[in-house]
Structures are given as C-alpha cells and as structure tokens.
C-alpha cells in the first residue's frame, strides 16, 4: 500500500478563526479516502489547505513523500492533484468545450486523446459541448467539474461534497461515475451524504472541531452505529 498523500497535524487559521487544529490522515494510492464530519468541522478547509488555497500555520503535507505545504497553489496542482470545490467552481460564461480546453495541459494529439477519454467517462457532457456552463443543471455542472479535474489524469482527485444540492437520482449518477473512476485514480472525498461515502469509500477519517478524531476502514464505520451517532449524528 503506497501512501500517496499524507497530512501531519495540520493547523489553519481563516482570519482570526482557528479552523484546523490538528488534522492527520493518509490517502492510499488507488483508494477512496472519505473525510467525514459535521458541518463546520473543517473538511473543506482541509482540502483547501492541502492545495494551498488556505495555507497552514503549522503542520505538514506530503505528496509522494515530498513536503508540499509551502508550495503555491498552482505548483501543488501541477504535481498531479485535481480539485472539485464544494461550489463546483464552474466558469458560468465559458462553454463546456472551453472548460475542457482550459483544463487540458499539453498540446496536439495528447490533448484530443484526453478529451476523448474523459468524454467517454462523462458522455452526457457531449450534448452540451457548445453550451455555456452557467445554463447546465446542478448535476451536469457537477459532472463538468469532476471531468475538468480528471482530464489531466491527475494522480489524486480531491472532491468536495459532490452530492450537495443534487436530486437523489442525480446523486446516483454521480456515484456511478465516481465508482467508474475508482481504481484509475486516487480520490479524497469530502461528503455529508453518508450513504454515498459508505458506498464509495475504502477508508474514512472523521474530523470534529478541526481535529481528526477517528479513522479506519469504511466497513468498520458501517459496523459501529455508535460511532456514526456520536460523530455524525446519524444512526
């Protein structure tokens, strides 16, 4: 088992607020690692801290054994980390095609090959190729955001609440897509929807009040109702 990404005692302030107070976790290559926790626990900030969007005040981030917490965001992203933010980060006045163009690194045939491979995984996006992303439905926007992060064959994808605000039927579709991506890439998934987390996750970490308080294999969490009740407020 190769550890692709590791954080050690991450601490992050946002303004005067001490949001992360010691987040430690590992993402194993090829697995889906789920970060769980109540609203405001610090899950989104953890992803933002890894990417350098909210730089840490203390602690370390390792990607493929290399320390990266000091790097600017664009350099971290170029190491092979794709990011799908909670609000999807879609550019509303760019078309789907333009999203693909802007996201794809490299030139020539490689670009076309990547676009084709990605569209094979997200076939619905073909229908909206020339449409502005702002007019897409919530589910289509989510697919576009994931496709954009996937297109460069990033070794790690960090996906923040992909089910947020989506109808159950659309959530199922997103789940199916993420399941197809499983194995091809490593995923860190922040998710409030426990069913989705349980379905996709191999390993979990629970963050509470800015600290990792519990971790293990997903099947363990499935077996321990009292953990779910205590930390997630669900049974």
């Amino acid at each position: 088992m190769e550890v692709l990404l590791k954080t050690e005692n991450l601490e992050t302030f946002i303004g005067q607020y001490h949001i992360l107070q010691g987040v430690t976790f590992e993402a194993i290559r090829g697995e889906v690692t789920v970060l769980l926790g109540r609203n405001g626990a610090g899950k989104t900030t953890t992803l933002r801290t890894i990417l350098g969007l909210s730089p840490p005040s203390r602690g370390k981030v390792f990607f493929k054994q290399k320390e990266i917490q000091e790097l600017p965001t664009y350099k971290t992203a170029n190491l092979g980390i794709g990011y799908v933010p909670e609000d999807q980060g879609i550019f509303p006045y760019l078309t789907v095609e333009e999203h693909f163009k802007i996201a794809t690194k490299g030139k020539g045939d490689k670009v076309n090959e990547r676009i084709e491979t990605t569209l094979a995984l997200f076939p619905d996006l073909k229908q909206f190729w020339r449409k502005q992303a702002g007019v897409l439905s919530g589910g289509q926007k989510q697919m576009l955001a994931i496709a954009r992060a996937y297109i460069n064959y990033n070794e790690l994808l960090m996906i923040d609440e992909p089910s947020k605000g989506l109808a159950p039927i659309v959530v199922e579709k997103v789940m199916e897509t993420l399941e197809r991506m499983k194995g091809e890439t490593t995923i860190i998934l922040v998710e409030q929807n426990y069913l989705m987390a349980e379905y996709l996750g191999d390993r979990f970490y629970i963050i509470d009040d800015g600290k990792t308080v519990l971790s293990g294999e997903m099947k363990e969490l499935k077996e321990h109702e009292e953990w779910r009740k205590k930390y997630l407020g669900i049974s």
Binding site: L53, N78, Y83, P92, L94, E98, K105
Partner: peptide
C-alpha cells in the same frame, strides 16, 4: 484568452487548475 476570461469569473479555481495566475 480563455484563462483570462475564466480568471475574471473565478481566479481561485484557475489557480487550482495549475495555472500561475
């Protein structure tokens, strides 16, 4: 040009895509 237009809409996301904004 696409990067500039995207940056006007969401510069943080552009940077998160590995572009030196």
């Amino acid at each position: 040009g696409l990067i500039v237009r995207a940056g006007v809409m969401n510069k943080e996301m552009v940077e998160a895509m590995g572009i030196h904004i």
